[in-house]
Amino acid sequence: MSFFQMAKTVLSSMFKKPATLNYPVKPREYDPIVRGHIEIEIEKCIFCGMCQRKCPTGAIKVERAEKRWAIEPFDCIQCNNCAESCPKDCLHMHNTATPANENRDLIRDARISVDAEDNKDS
């Protein structure tokens, strides 16, 4: 009896759509609230260091004098605390995973961009 039960499940599975996605062709769509990785709008940042204090793992380093904001993505636990505490609202949580990159420093540091620095000087 129970054999036929399982056979029924197997048979119906044969005609159903697969439960998995045809991945590289059809990428997964994440809900907007999914916490993937943090990005900064460095132009708006005032280097107050609030995010550094709120970060439970100490992944964020802010150096006010050098106007430098850096995150160690491997330490980040995607808790969204920094984005919630930012007074200028310049940190954003994106719903995709940290993008792969060959240059480790590029991921780790989001220094103030050269253009923005030029604009400030002028």
């Binding site: 809900d31 999914v34 916490r35 636990i77 808790c79 969204n80 949580m93």
Partner: peptide, 21 residues
């Protein structure tokens, strides 16, 4: 497979699949 549907609910409501924070 059934568990995955629950995990999708977590994704949708909390933003995390396993660790919800």
């Amino acid at each position: 497979r059934l568990r995955e549907e629950i995990l999708d609910l977590f994704d949708m409501t909390t933003g995390g699949r396993v660790i919800f924070s």
